[in-house]
Design a protein around this nucleic acid. Structure first.
Lengths: 119, 119
DNA sequence: TATACATTTTCAAAAATTAGATTATGTTTG
DNA sequence: CAAACATAATCTAATTTTTGAAAATGTATA
């Protein structure tokens, strides 16, 4: 099954990184960690899962997740800040959807690791 | 309706999930979030990056990251708890390595998203 | 049109929880 | 004992939830 695991597209870091490389690496790690923190939250993960199958209003999410609307709204704000979701107003309701497939890419891996094998 | 067709190995959740499915989903989300939280930390991400190119002792990591050993040790404890790294004792030193390619799978995606395009 | 009111969502601030760094102390090995 | 790591206790900072509004939109009715 792992025919498509080539010796990794990851770079190899040698032990003597230049100060510039170290800084670059730390800067990237910061951005990546921020992104992963946004995903590392039960509620936000659930939101993303639901949005993966189509846009939802805040009220719909509130009902789907059994979470108070203010909390949902705040979690959406975080995801919006991270550029993972975008709002679209239609009358009274605001519908959220995934902005691109970045969260999807991660979630597919996460799904394989934590959901697939347990079904 | 749906703007883009998801290529997606992700399942589609319909709005009327059974209570069992909801619980299952939340349980999975909890595990996945815990995993993502472990990765959502600059220091731990850097540790994993370094371990991706081979096992390292705590002292080596301490030097590579310019972080006190107690902090490195704590971060390693978290990663160990999450099953992402494993220790191997050799004399006085303890060498850590990735347990499997789960972190690698995530990191490859993260690397593509945050590091690749900026080099 | 104007007024009143309900609904949906956001905002802001306080309270509660959690996470991380530091310091200090143990443990294992040579 | 010294070196290499781990663990515990403490302190601080960051996150999350809760609460109580406020803003925007739509509906009903006179």
């Amino acid at each position: 099954m792992n025919a498509q695991t080539p010796p990794s597209r990851l770079p190899v870091f040698h032990d003597d990184l230049s100060p510039e490389d170290t800084e670059k690496m730390m800067s990237n790690a910061e951005k990546a960690a921020s992104f992963l923190k946004a995903l590392g939250h039960e509620g936000r993960l659930m939101i993303l899962c639901h949005l993966a199958s189509g846009e939802k209003s805040v009220t719909e999410l509130e009902r789907l997740l059994s979470v108070r609307h203010a909390a949902v709204s705040q979690q959406l704000t975080r995801l919006r800040y991270e550029g993972l979701v975008k709002p679209r107003r239609d009358g009274k309701a605001i519908y959220y959807s995934l902005t691109d497939d970045r969260p999807r890419q991660i979630m597919e891996v996460v799904y394989d690791l934590f959901c697939r094998d347990e079904d």
